[in-house]
Simulated scan of single mutants.
Amino acid sequence: MNNFIYENSTKVYFGKGCVKEYLSCLVEKYGKRILLAYGGGSIKKNGIYQEVMDILEKAGAEVAEFSGIMANPTYQKVLEGAELARVHQSDWILGIGGGSVMDCCKAVSMAAVSTKDIWENYWEKMGIIDFEPLPLGVIVTVAGTGSECNGGAVITNEERKIKTGRDYPQCNPKFALMDPTYTYSVPVKQMVSGGFDILSHIMETYFSEPDTDNVSDDISEALMRSTIRNLRAAVQNPKDYTARSNLLWASTMAENRITKLGKKCDFECHQMEHQLGAYTDCNHGCGLAVLHPVYYRHIYKDGLAKFVRFAENVWEIPRGDKTDEEMAREGVEALADFIREIGLPATLRELGVTEHTPLKEIADSCNLSPGSYRKMSHEEILEIYQECY
């Protein structure tokens, strides 16, 4: 294992009924003036909004609503939320939703109290947070990003066509309420794309150095097997509590920094998808599903031993008399087959990319990951986009 420092400050309340059981006590702890943040309004259709509002009302909370957070939250939306928090003099933020809501709320928690330009000082480049962000609590309704137990937030600057993620431990939610039944109402396509995002997070950590025996890789293999197994079960029965609860916790485990300890991490696929999203606003999990097999066909020889291990320990492909290269390729193709099995797209055309989409411009805008097994170039990223088309 490489050296590391580990800390995670988020307190998790997990299980059926946890919102009803604990939310009122948390209002007493963090304050009664709350900025309530959510997305397009699905929580009003599925009953979650009313359940939460009833609890807040009984607790005597004064609520300002910050709604309409989009799938790829923008910097302008962050500024809107920050202004509302200041006007309302909010004690804290309560975000209800998936990764986009949680990410937006983290940026809002900084922008509401900082006098600096948040984008220029903290997203365009890494900055040092020398202030205390507005406290944030989250109620998770979608399994996918794992944003509930880290300080990471992906924000899109529409004017500059840049989609960037940063992780500041000070932005970790103070608490996360995670009731798996709250994820039931998510459409199957969204559930599946979120599930693949979980798998992607694990793979992008796993396929990086070190390759010597380490606990992080062992945990990652177990999480990948669990995610694959439970995603299949949830596709068959979206209200399978065991499957949905396992996916929800796997999402958290993939991004609470545990599996990243001592690892270089790759995340080149995320870089490529983020820039695709900045230009096309495509679904994040679907974009990752298109990119991953093609990207891995490019790099598997550079991380051959790990790709062989992936084939054997995750997909349980029998070794027989296969060479290392044959085993590694079969592991990548097993991943591609799984993507098709769960109904995710396999081409960029299915995401709305056309011959007029500026793929070269998008490729040139991608950051190059220092943790990748293969040192990428913008030219090779363009090749990957073209092969995905």
Score class of each variant (00 low, 15 high):
173 P>H: 05
365 S>K: 11
79 L>M: 15
59 A>Q: 06
139 I>Y: 03
59 A>E: 04
155 I>N: 09
373 Y>K: 11
139 I>C: 03
198 I>Y: 03
171 C>R: 09
382 L>M: 12
215 V>R: 02
115 T>D: 12
57 E>M: 07
364 D>K: 13
173 P>N: 12
39 G>F: 10
296 Y>C: 02
340 R>Y: 10
91 D>Q: 07
325 E>P: 02
44 K>T: 14
22 Y>F: 14
53 M>Q: 13
133 P>D: 08
68 G>L: 13
332 V>P: 15
251 S>Q: 03
203 M>A: 13
247 L>V: 02
114 S>E: 05
68 G>A: 07
256 N>F: 02
64 A>S: 13
106 K>A: 06
70 M>N: 09
88 H>W: 15
101 V>D: 09
170 Q>Y: 06
87 V>Q: 10
52 V>Q: 09
184 Y>H: 13
203 M>F: 09
290 V>K: 03
303 G>Y: 05
196 F>I: 00
301 K>M: 10
346 A>K: 10
105 C>Q: 03
370 P>Q: 08
269 C>V: 15
113 V>A: 10
199 L>Q: 04
252 T>S: 12
55 I>A: 07
177 L>I: 15
364 D>G: 07
90 S>T: 05
263 K>M: 07
189 K>N: 13
331 G>V: 12
189 K>V: 06
10 T>H: 14
273 E>T: 14
211 D>T: 14
338 F>E: 04
148 E>S: 07
63 V>L: 04
275 Q>I: 12
134 L>Q: 00
71 A>Y: 05
46 N>L: 04
217 D>L: 00
300 Y>A: 10
88 H>D: 11
165 G>F: 12
337 D>W: 00
264 K>S: 06
353 V>H: 06
122 Y>F: 15
283 N>F: 01
350 E>D: 11
354 T>W: 04
223 L>K: 09
289 A>S: 15
114 S>G: 03
321 D>M: 11
276 L>F: 13
34 I>S: 05
182 Y>M: 10
199 L>Y: 08
175 F>G: 00
297 R>V: 02
168 Y>T: 10
213 D>A: 03
103 D>Y: 08
274 H>M: 05
383 E>L: 06
346 A>P: 02
297 R>P: 01
264 K>I: 13
338 F>T: 00
48 I>V: 15
374 R>D: 10
23 L>G: 01
286 C>E: 15
207 F>V: 00
80 E>D: 15
227 T>Q: 05
341 E>T: 02
63 V>H: 04
288 L>Q: 11
223 L>H: 06
279 Y>V: 03
12 V>T: 13
97 G>P: 04
62 E>V: 14
8 N>I: 06
299 I>K: 08
183 T>P: 05
185 S>Y: 04
317 I>M: 14
154 V>R: 00
389 Y>P: 01
236 Q>V: 06
154 V>M: 08
363 A>N: 02
259 T>Q: 06
224 M>W: 01
24 S>W: 06
311 A>L: 11
